[in-house]
Each structure stands twice: as structure tokens, then as C-alpha cells.
Design a protein around this nucleic acid. Sequence first.
DNA 1: CAATATGCGTACCGATCGGTAACATTGTCA
DNA 2: TGACAATGTTACCGATCGGTACGCATATTG
Lengths: 207, 207
Amino acid sequence: MAQKPLPDQPVVETIPVAVPRAADKIRRTARELFYAAGIRAVGVDEIVTKAGVTKPSLYRAFPSKDELAAAYLRDYDAEFWQRFEARLDTAGRDNPRAGLMDFLHNLGSRAGAPHYRGCGLSNTAVEYPDDSHPARKVSEHHKQKLRLRLAELAADMGADDPKLLGDSLMLLIEGAFVTGQLFHAGGGPARALAEAAERLIDSHLKG
Amino acid sequence: MAQKPLPDQPVVETIPVAVPRAADKIRRTARELFYAAGIRAVGVDEIVTKAGVTKPSLYRAFPSKDELAAAYLRDYDAEFWQRFEARLDTAGRDNPRAGLMDFLHNLGSRAGAPHYRGCGLSNTAVEYPDDSHPARKVSEHHKQKLRLRLAELAADMGADDPKLLGDSLMLLIEGAFVTGQLFHAGGGPARALAEAAERLIDSHLKG
DNA sequence: CAATATGCGTACCGATCGGTAACATTGTCA
DNA sequence: TGACAATGTTACCGATCGGTACGCATATTG
């Protein structure tokens, strides 16, 4: 449109901006709502309304609410690893302890934020005890990967029992996830996360 | 009835056995279902059906489902402290470390059971992010009490920084609650609970 | 015996749940 | 211009949600 604008009219360039598709809007809105309120607490009507789309659009892009929840967690999982590995990279691959501690310091402070809601993947496992649920499957797979990664890092640090240190660190991390949303005043037990991790790591490097 | 039984008829004594009232049956059934499946996942119809009563009986004893959930958690809280303090007593009040470790060893093994579902109070906080929910209020109050109690025990052990050690132990415990229901194969990270606690306690007693 | 209180069940309510059928509208590209 | 893919519109479905009006039964008490 407006191939030859009249002299006294402003020239309007047609810049092609990527307009978000309905499926993307749904994905993003579901992500926010599911994380903040929990999956069971959010209905599909609320999602499509807040996303500015309609229900058929949701069911054209996702076969069911359960699968939408699984997709939300797959996004969550991807973002988690992106941030996690980024911190390890910043500290340098030759210094896994510093990278992990960077992550833990960050987590410890985030967990004290006013409306912190912990880990969306852990929360989903609490909401859906049944292993057959597609969303829970994503959660379990993620946690198994996290467990292995922590043991790997423990080994890289030179721990005498890497699996034991990795599991110990995982307990601290998951504990920070949960207590973070229980003590939202900022001064919850999660403030002890980094210090406790340091002590545990120390105790495994002394041997 | 049967004041003067005939000679060839068996004597039937009238022993007054406490027949569980409808409210009690509801409370017990709700407890099982809420813990196993989560509060949001269980409808009041399922509760009354499994309890063998009817819906009006539920609403005569409890003003709402939310309040029934709160009652469930108050029961849960009471049982928790009963078992917790019992273990401390068995070990002797002069040996808080042994008592706590007894609790942690027990928790670590329970968390590996096939259908372990963690702590009902923690789970509820995940299910209900809103502080105004009556069930969540019970959960938050319980966790604050647990935090104080752990710091108390840390002080009794002679820790240099009792609050820090208490919070560290709390992270481990909550971590065992949630990972216990994520890795139900028995070999989850919760197996590291006791050992990690020992190391943390040691590190706080060295000073 | 009659009166009353307590405990419980039958049947129902409106609202919301996840999900779908049928069709109109739009923008894109050939 | 015409075909196509994506989205919106509207209306609907059966099931389940939490919650309630009302009446029946039994046991106590005068």
C-alpha cells in the first residue's frame, strides 16, 4: 500500500515485523499462567482469553491441555539448561566449582523474591503423581538429567564420591525451590543454599 | 437387648464399640486421598463415596472443601510432630544429634519407597500459591515451626551458627521430600540425606 | 406415649471443566 | 483472480465441579 504518497503525507515504510502466531501466543501465555498458579489451577478458557486467541486455535496447535502442559515444561527445560550451562561457561569449563557456585548464588537470591514459585518442573511432579501423565514425564526426565549433570560436575571438581556429592547438592537445590515459595519474605532457608553447598563440596575434596 | 438369653442361645454381650461418625470417616478418607493424589485432584464426590457417606454429611462437618483440606493438614501437622519428637525422645534429650539423625535415616529410607509422595504440607504449598488459602496457611505455619525447631536442635548440638545449620538441614529435608516422589525407584538423591547432614553438622561443630 | 433433637440420605442446583463441529474471515502467494 | 492455509466466530457437548434445599429416620427425653 501507499506506493506513491502525496507530498504532504508522511511516508510510511512497510517494515515486515514477525507477528506472533496463535500457537506462540498460547505457548507464552500458558507458560506464565501455569508457572504462576499451577497447571491444574489454570483452565484452557483463561489461557485463550489472556492470549487473545480462541479455543479452537489452542486445540489446532495442541492435542490436549495435558500436551500443552508438556510443551510448557519442554520450553522450561530448554531455558533452564541454557541458563545453567551459560553460567558454567562464564566461569570457565576448567572451573566447575565457580560456575556451579555462581548458579547457586543466583538461585539463592531468586528464591527470596516476593512471588517466587520454585521450579516449574518440580511443581508439576507434585501436581501429577501419576507417571503416565505427559507433563510429569518431562519433569522426571529433566530431573534425571539434572542429577547426572551434578554428579558430572562433582567429578570434575575432583570429589571422592561424585555421585554422593551430586545427590547432596541436588537435595539442597530442590530444597531451595520448595522453601523459596514457602518463605516468600526473602529471609527463608534458601539463604543458606550457597554456604551449605560450599561446606559439602569442601568435605568431599578433603580426602 | 438380650437381657435374659435362652440357655441354648449364645450369650451376646453388648460391648459399646465406638462407631466412627460420618465426620471421622470423611476426615480419614480425605487424608488418604488428598495425600496420595493432591488436593485439587480429588473431588468431594470421590471423598464421600469412598468414605461411604454422603455429601451433606461432609458439609455439615466442614464449611467447605478448602476447610476440609485445612483440617487434613492440621491432622498431618500433629502426626508429624508426634513422630518427630518421639524420635528425639528415644535418642534422649541430651543427644539431639542422634535423635535428628534417627529421623533423617528414617526419612531417607521412606523417601525411597515405591509410591512415596513427600510431605503433604509442602505439596499443598505448591498446589496453592495464594497465601489466603486456608490450607496453605496451615502449611506455612508448620514450616515456620519446623525451621525454628531445626535451629533449636542445631543450637543444642553446639553449632557455631545454629540458624545457618538449621536452614541447611531444612534444605536437605525438603529436598528429600520432593526428590523422593520424583525418583520412586528407591535409588534417588534422597539416599544422600543422612550422609550430607552428617557432613554439614560436622562442619558446624569444628569451629 | 409424644415431642424434640440429632444424624443422615435423595435429589438437585448453577458454574465450570476440557473439548469439538461448522462456518466465516483473513492474508499470502501464484 | 483464485486457491490455500491460518485464524476467528459461534454455539454446543457431556462430565464434573463445589455446594445446598428438604425430608426421612432414629434415639433421647419429658
